[in-house]
Design a protein around this nucleic acid. Structure first.
Lengths: 148, 148
DNA sequence: GTGTTTGCAAAGTGTTTGCAATTTA
DNA sequence: TAAATTGCAAACACTTTGCAAACAC
């Protein structure tokens, strides 16, 4: 297996880490071990929806030692930096989405599952002007779904 | 001040209570003192948005002795009975709306304030079909607003 | 070195629950 | 009287925080 034509798992991990470091630096965050590991899990190319607990579990299973408190802090730092978007669909827990672009969600309450709806799909029209002194920040659409 | 042409405050309170009792009975709920008092506050004719805490405070200030646990239980019973609708806009607390009809909301995060948008106003189009095995339950639109 | 970040454990917040006492029908 | 409801206090789940040790630059 020639070194030049196929990466080893180790190479891939290293690349993922390099990408994470670059991304963190670009967003003004120190690339600490914990942030690199969490970023490696979150920004793997797919759009992802996580809760603090799900990400902590995933990190733990992946062998990354990160405390739950740090996961919470990191999710908020990433959100503040613009790497993540927080989504409110369930009073019980906070979800974070790696897709920070303009899009909406299906939410399956029974399973606590979020599914992206591409931005171009849904159209919201005739949003009235907000009350005096207020400006529209964002329009969130949540399509709540149930087992048929 | 003729009794026949103008109601006293006491009469009004009695009427409110009579209406509350009728409403509770109609929805299959025993008209206990606490439920009558809370219903009297909630269903005064205006559309209202409350949290458990705000309603408990209001009840207390109105001289009604109701525990916070009972307010929580009552809000859920009213919701289950169809008298209220629960609204998820803030991960930190649950809001309940006395307007159970089809409508959407402005939400002012800074002040934790909800404002109704009439049902006919907003239009959501091109909601895609949900994933296999799931059916659309409801489409919630939250227009998040900020101080201009 | 110096300022930042982490992790733990403790505290905090909103909410639910177990159960004896009370109330409704 | 029988069944439903209440209130308290304790339990809960999720989240935040204070602070000493560890780390990045």
């Amino acid at each position: 297996m020639p070194r030049q034509t196929k990466q080893t798992a180790k190479d891939h991990a290293a690349d993922t880490d390099t990408a994470a470091v670059a991304r963190l630096r670009a967003f003004g965050l120190r690339p600490t071990r914990q942030r690199r590991e969490l970023a490696g899990l979150l920004f793997d190319g797919c759009d992802r929806h996580v809760t603090a607990e799900s990400l902590h579990d995933e990190a733990t299973h992946a062998g990354a030692r990160v405390s739950l408190a740090t996961v919470y802090n990191t999710l908020h730092q990433f959100t503040e930096a613009g790497l993540l978007r927080q989504i409110v669909v369930d009073a019980a827990r906070s979800y974070f989405d790696t897709n920070v672009g303009d899009h909406q969600h299906f939410f399956h309450e029974e399973d606590g599952l979020l599914i992206d709806i591409p931005s171009q799909t849904i159209a919201v029209s005739n949003v009235p002007a907000p009350p005096e002194g207020l400006a529209v920040d964002r329009v969130d659409v949540v399509v709540r779904v149930k087992r048929a």
